[in-house]
Amino acid sequence: MELNRRGFFKVMGATSALLSAGMGKARAAWVSKAPPDPYGCLVDLTRCVGCRKCEEACNDANSLPPPDIPFDDPVVFETDRRPDEKTYTIVNRHSSGKIDDRDKLVPVFTKVQCMHCQDPACVSACIAGALTKKENGTVHYDAGRCIGCRYCMVACPFEIPAYEYTNPITPKVQKCTFCFDRIIREGGKPACVAVCPVEAITFGKRNILLVLAKNKISDLPAKYIQHIYGEHEAGGTSWMYISDTPFEKLGFTKVIPEPIPRLSETVQHSLFSYLWSPALLYGLLGGIMWTTNKAKNKDKGGSDASS
């Protein structure tokens, strides 16, 4: 192969320009891309009565297929369910461990759906940007961009996105939409929230809900446990929970308080912003190659470099 001087320096000049630009950017620390004033939902588990109206409303609002077991059949509580490709939200029954004055176990019902993280791992992961975090807090899925790699599912710390595994050609990732189309309308509420008979779910601006949650907890410190699930989990989520039973007992997974994408994005950007490191490596390898080639040419008595 031939490596002539002019060609070599042309390439190297371009790379060094990239290099200086990239290293500057790489030094900048990771910044959260969370919207400042998103909507959110505060689920007060002490209020939920387990009527599963929210499941029904969600099914209706999102035109999902009818459930295998009807919405008014309490037999579903016998198993621990997870949202799936036909169900964006489910209500599970757990035991609080307490017994009421009629010697019955007091149940706690937990509604599960996408948490709409402030810095969502799924959004950071998505190869084609099919998932996006909107200004209003929604983590929105655009099937038109999706290639079905399922990296979002790998990334999500709450195991939320589900997949239409039985669709051979156009499967979609399925998860709670935060009723995006409804909440962008003035006064619109998510379907599950609107239907809830006891306002177990409060819908509003996340910042206000946080204050509300803190007030509720400090007003009744003996009732609530001192933890707002979703305030810090995964760097904060739009959906949050307060409860009178420890969250670990209710199937809530322990999630680190840092935004999940922080580490991978920091690594990725400090290595690759403006492609500085590949450029550097290219330059380095090019230099080595040029030197070894020159040495070889000298051996051959200065004949043209080719091999």
Partner: peptide, 8 residues
Amino acid sequence: SFMSDHPE
């Protein structure tokens, strides 16, 4: 529900 001046 959820009047912004009366979240509680």
